[in-house]
């Protein structure tokens, strides 16, 4: 058994597709019309056969209060791993991404949080070599 799919609830699939590909640099893997929405997944270029991220519409009535409560407490909806957080923060900042938490140490990782413009906070983490 393996985890092939995870998801993030997005306010607008078109906007999300742009943000997650143009800004974050992921690639669309599946894009299948499904009624008024799409089965829209992206993958990392570093792992094209890896876990897919489903950009899932937010229209179930439970989703709005769930997302609002997470953002209210500053809790990220998802977490992505990067090799160099400092470089990534600069690159995304230059592309106009709004960071709500600047890179900070959090035990064995360094982390930062940004707004995905689709109603979520997203965490970036860099694994630190704790043996150094």
């Amino acid at each position: 058994m393996k985890i092939y799919l995870t998801h993030v609830f997005v306010d607008d699939q078109d906007k999300a597709e742009k943000f997650y590909t143009d800004i974050l640099g992921f690639t669309v893997k599946n894009n299948v019309p499904l009624g008024e929405h799409r089965w829209l997944t992206v993958v990392s270029n570093e792992a094209p056969e890896g876990t897919e991220l489903l950009l899932e519409p937010s229209d179930h009535p439970a989703v709005k209060p769930y997302k609002e409560a997470l953002v209210s407490d500053g809790i990220p909806a998802h977490s992505f791993q990067v090799e160099d957080l400092h470089a990534e923060r600069k690159k995304l900042g230059d592309l106009g991404v709004n960071f709500t938490v600047e890179p900070m140490d959090a035990g064995p990782v360094r982390m930062a949080i940004f707004d995905d413009t689709c109603g979520n906070l997203i965490q970036l983490i860099q694994m630190m070599d704790v043996t150094k």
Binding site: D73, G74, I75, P76, T100, V101, M104, A106, G107, I113
Partner: peptide, 24 residues
């Protein structure tokens, strides 16, 4: 600081993982 940040700082600085409910 958001609730999340207060929790994260607690782990990072003191090595104590407090539940969000406790911190809240």
């Amino acid at each position: 600081q958001s609730l999340f940040e207060v929790c994260a700082a607690s782990v990072a600085e003191d090595g104590i993982a407090l539940s969000r409910q406790t911190v809240s």
